[in-house]
Amino acid sequence: MNSSVIIFPGSNCDRDMAVALKKFGFKNKMVWHNDTELPKSDLVVLPGGFSYGDYLRCGSMASKSKIIDSVIKFAKSGGLLLGICNGFQILTETELLPGVLLKNKYSKFICKNVFVKINNSENKYFKNIKKNILELHIAHNEGNFFCSNDQMKEINDNNQIAVHYCSQNGEIEDSFNPNGAIKNIAGLFNKEKNILGMMPHPERMIDNYLSGEDGSIFFQNLINNLK
């Protein structure tokens, strides 16, 4: 399986993502934002970080970079496109995903482990996953998912919510919502479910000694579904 990780100026989770992808069997290539062609890929990843210094709005400048036309073309033809954290912000700015990630409700940069519950597993990312509550890491200042009422209706009608913030036992309540996101949304699909944007970082949870293993479950499951 071939993967590509796009590097923007200011990306800082690109290498972690490459390490994770390789660990679970992907042949990964790093792609610079100024390139115009994507290598042959089964999965393209927009990594976390602070692309273009978060200037203007998080992800807005990256959404207009040279490589993005190829990324959009790849996703529109059904290719798997995963955006983590800043990658999720880029996906909303390109309008591949609906809504926008606002500043966290309580004006704090949040860096901690959270639990997320998988809402929809009828897709390549979560099909057959052995746990439906994952402990993952978040680190963001703008993770407060917001959208218009019309967009929310469409999200619900098409079952596009991927993961919700929840308690260790899977309760989806306000008290387990770290950033004020509507409906505790931590991750979202497009209508066709080949594009996934998520605030939590699975690539930070792939080593039992350093962090935890729920990211391993995510990546192992993903590559199994692609084989």
């Binding site: 606002l102 500043k103 966290n104 409700k105 004006s107 917001f146």
Partner: peptide, 9 residues
Amino acid sequence: DVLDPQGKV
């Protein structure tokens, strides 16, 4: 109707 935490601070 969009929350503005910066303005609030």
